[in-house]
Simulated scan of single mutants.
Amino acid sequence: MPDALDVLVDGLTFPEGPRWHDGRLWFSDFYSYSVLAVDAGGKLETIVEVPQRPSGLGWTRDGRLLIVSMLDRKLLGLDGTTLTPVADLSALASGPCNDMVVDSQGRAYVGNFGFDRHKGEAQRTTCIVRVDPDGTVTKAADDLLFPNGTVITPDGKTLIVGETFAHRLTAFDVAADGTLSNPRLWARVEGCYPDGICLDAEGAIWVSDPFGHRLLRVFEGGRIAREIPLAPRGAYACMLGGDDRRTLFVCTNSGSGPSIADKRDGRIETLRVDVPGAGWP
């Protein structure tokens, strides 16, 4: 299929965390402090405003929307039109919270920066936090360098996370109770800074590489099956959705960080692909 992307939505501040749910693409727009949803025709709806900046999104088994609140490092739930606290992650998250995957049991795995890169703090490793359906907060994995986009395989037995500044994807075994173990290299891609990711039915992972201005389709071991150049724009997140899960939705922008907010340069772009999405999200 051709590599030209179509613009579905533009004029956003910084779209992130795209998720296909109930016939629409849901995503966070950082600097408008909003969670939005868009249909196939480009019609936008503001779902809720999150004062401390929304990031990762997911749904519980009963359909409740979970939202990562970045700056105060909390997990929130949307009950009707009201945001309610689910868990406080600040005791474990050493930087702003970011991406999240919610599994089939409603367990949320939340990453964090580990440091504030926009304030010039030195890089340091950090953890993934698991929040169980009863609100229990547990350190699920540690010693990760900027854990970012995260997926879970269709059998629920493997979680894979992109470590942005380590240029790698790291896998864990997932036990029946949600415990993560056996950390191992899934793929190293030198020169790539994995941000948002999504999994397809052939076991490949689409990787957003913002600093490389490209999208990559990567198999375990590091083989790159497809590369889609996007320069001068960067790809910050991606999601396979649509009725057949063969539409790749890509969050793109001309830059990142708070200075990008007023440019309103964020877009949701789309590309039809051959292999449908699989697993979670």
Rank of each mutant, 00 (worst) to 15 (best):
I128C: 10
T46R: 15
T138G: 05
P281S: 10
G196L: 04
D155F: 04
V250L: 08
L145E: 05
A237L: 08
V250W: 03
C251V: 04
V137F: 12
I224L: 12
L180R: 02
D134T: 11
G42W: 10
S69Q: 12
D243Y: 09
S259M: 10
G63I: 11
P2T: 15
W186F: 14
E202G: 02
R117F: 15
R24E: 14
A171Y: 03
A122M: 12
V38L: 06
S32L: 03
D142Y: 09
C251F: 07
L169T: 02
G149F: 00
G114E: 04
G212K: 02
G58Q: 07
V50M: 09
T158P: 02
T247A: 12
D200N: 14
L25P: 00
V207L: 09
N182V: 02
S94I: 06
L144G: 01
I228L: 12
V275C: 07
L36M: 13
L78Q: 07
S32H: 03
W280A: 00
A93D: 05
R217P: 01
P183H: 08
C192D: 03
H21C: 08
N182L: 04
N112P: 03
R272K: 15
R233T: 10
C198Q: 00
T46H: 11
L145I: 06
D29L: 09
V131T: 03
E190H: 09
S254D: 14
S254C: 09
L8A: 07
A231L: 09
Q105Y: 14
K119E: 13
H167D: 13
G222W: 11
F115R: 00
A141Y: 08
L216R: 01
V50A: 05
P210N: 06
H118S: 07
V101C: 05
R188P: 00
A108C: 12
A225P: 05
A122L: 14
P258S: 12
G178M: 08
G222T: 12
G77F: 10
C251P: 01
P258Q: 11
F219G: 06
L71Y: 15
I67K: 06
G95K: 03
L230W: 13
G241M: 09
F14T: 00
I260Q: 13
F219S: 11
P18Y: 06
L12S: 03
V161S: 07
V102K: 02
P258M: 10
A140C: 13
S254Q: 12
K157H: 13
N98A: 08
R168N: 13
R73V: 06
A175Q: 14
F30D: 01
S181W: 09
L248E: 01
G279R: 01
P183K: 03
D143C: 08
A176N: 13
D200T: 06
S254E: 13
E227N: 08
W280G: 00
N182H: 15
L271Y: 12
D72Y: 02
Q123G: 11
W20F: 10
P147H: 01
I205T: 00
S256F: 15
L145W: 05
L169I: 08
G41D: 15
P276M: 06
D142K: 06
T125A: 15
L215S: 02
D143Y: 04
L92I: 07
T46A: 12
R19H: 13
I197Y: 00
F146A: 02
I205M: 00
L5D: 00
G212S: 05
T81L: 10
V189H: 01
F172H: 13
